[in-house]
């Protein structure tokens, strides 16, 4: 209310240019300050929540990672939790799995999304909206839902096995989820199914920002289709590619729902992810918060390093 009054009096004073200029500018300054204060008030709840719900727990987790023991009975353990990591076979397997998913799934998904986006961006394509909606549809299903659908499809008596037996490729059902490599492949297929459309939308919006005259000029200069793709589309989409790469890396390092619900981390932890292992250590086995926190810091460091590397690569290609 008081601000209203000030805003009024301010315009009043500037209209009446008779007032001394020093007084006027002094008045403006307090008004500016008052507006800036309003800005701070708007920001405050959000900033406070992020500090309390993200940064503070992050520091707590760092402290926890140097401790060992159960809830009220925690003792300092130095770097014991971190040295223990090196000998933990499940941790190494989980780390390895995360990198397998990252190095195989992310590139396939991003390239597929790029190809789909460049086809959907063609001006004379018919039924564009329908294609786009259908390809994006998997993103509307929850992670647990699609994980259970894929688990059921690839079960030993699931639809995929039924079809393979009908086609005569298999004589009895293959236990996809019971073998380490095929279990990992099922997770990769499921991830590609779920996320390709999501990334495609980012590329599509990036492509729509590229002026079509660029392509016409390239055509006049006699550029081939693949030349246009690699020399024009990909460089112009670089910011989007960088963004999707960082998002996918971040997402892959935090995989949880799929590991829990498609393979249950199995067989014998062969397809477990880091987040799944952290959950098991904290809430499934005898709670070991200190050790789990140490692993979570490994994820944090990997996320930071990979994001930094990707940004470096994204910057220097020019």
């Amino acid at each position: 209310m008081r601000k209203n009054y000030d805003a009024n009096s301010d315009t009043g004073s500037s209209k009446a240019a008779v007032l001394p200029s020093t007084q006027d500018s002094g008045h403006r300054l307090t008004l500016k300050r008052r507006q800036s204060l309003a800005g701070w008030i708007y920001i405050f709840p959000a900033a406070l929540l992020i500090v309390v719900m993200s940064f503070y727990p992050m520091i707590q987790a760092l402290i926890l990672s140097f401790k060992t023991g159960v809830s009220n009975n925690m003792k300092w353990a130095g770097v014991y939790n971190y040295t223990r990591l090196v000998q933990d076979k499940v941790f190494i397997q989980a780390l390895l799995n995360t990198f397998i998913y990252l190095l195989i799934q992310v590139p396939i998904m991003l390239i597929l999304a790029l190809i789909l986006a460049s086809i959907l961006n063609k001006p004379s394509l018919k039924c564009k909206g329908l294609f786009r909606t259908l390809i994006f549809l998997p993103c509307a299903t929850s992670l647990v839902s699609y994980s259970i659908i894929f688990r059921t499809l690839f079960a030993i008596n699931g639809y995929i096995n039924t079809v393979l037996i009908h086609l005569g490729i298999l004589s009895t059902g293959y236990n996809f989820l019971g073998h380490p490599n095929s279990a990992r492949i099922v997770i990769i297929i499921a991830l590609i199914w779920r996320w390709t459309g999501y990334n495609m939308v980012f590329y599509l919006s990036g492509l729509q920002n590229i002026d079509s005259s660029v392509y016409e000029a390239a055509k006049l200069d006699g550029a081939s289709k693949s030349q246009t793709f690699w020399k024009i589309t990909v460089p112009l989409l670089k910011p989007m590619i960088l963004l999707t790469a960082i998002m996918s890396t971040n997402g892959t390092l935090q995989l949880f729902d799929e590991s829990v619900n498609i393979t249950s981390g199995g067989p014998a932890n062969a397809s477990i992810t880091l987040s799944h292992y952290i959950y098991n250590l904290s809430f499934k086995y005898m709670p070991n918060f200190g050790y789990a926190a140490a692993i979570s810091y490994v994820i944090l460091v990997i996320v930071a390093v990979l994001a930094f590397l990707q940004m470096k690569v994204g910057d220097t290609r020019d």
Binding site: S54, A61, I278
Partner: peptide, 15 residues
Amino acid sequence: AMMVPFAATMIPLYQ
């Protein structure tokens, strides 16, 4: 804070 993986804050948040 975007970079902070949920796994890293989950345990303190639970506590």
